[in-house]
């Protein structure tokens, strides 16, 4: 998957989780949680959805790697290179 594809996957997952999600003013290097007003329960959903779709196991101590859209892409790029 390319970086752009990964970004789209993340946005698609968030859109699925939250019908109120508004990406118009989303800044890629700022925390997703604050910008989209999501909480830790929603965050777990992103992790669970990645597990369901790509059999990715993300240990809890690595959750902070998913804090911004850019950091998600950086973190997932090597893990999703074969998809």
């Amino acid at each position: 998957m390319t970086r752009n594809e990964i970004k789209n996957v993340i946005l698609e997952i968030i859109e699925d989780i939250d019908e109120e999600a508004d990406f118009d003013s989303l800044e890629a290097d700022k925390p997703l949680r604050d910008q989209l007003d999501l909480d830790s329960m929603d965050f777990l959903d992103i992790v669970m959805e990645l597990r369901k779709r790509y059999k990715l196991q993300i240990p809890e101590e690595e959750y902070p790697e998913l804090s911004t859209l850019n950091s998600c892409v950086n973190y997932l790029e090597p893990k999703l290179k074969d998809f």
């Binding site: 007003d37 929603d42 959903d45």
Partner: peptide, 21 residues
């Protein structure tokens, strides 16, 4: 109301993947 994302009711609907709208 649906736009108050942090409210327990709306968190619940998101967790269950039910449409609050």
């Amino acid at each position: 109301p649906p736009e108050e994302k942090r409210a327990p009711l709306n968190r619940l609907f998101r967790q269950l993947r039910l449409s609050r709208r």
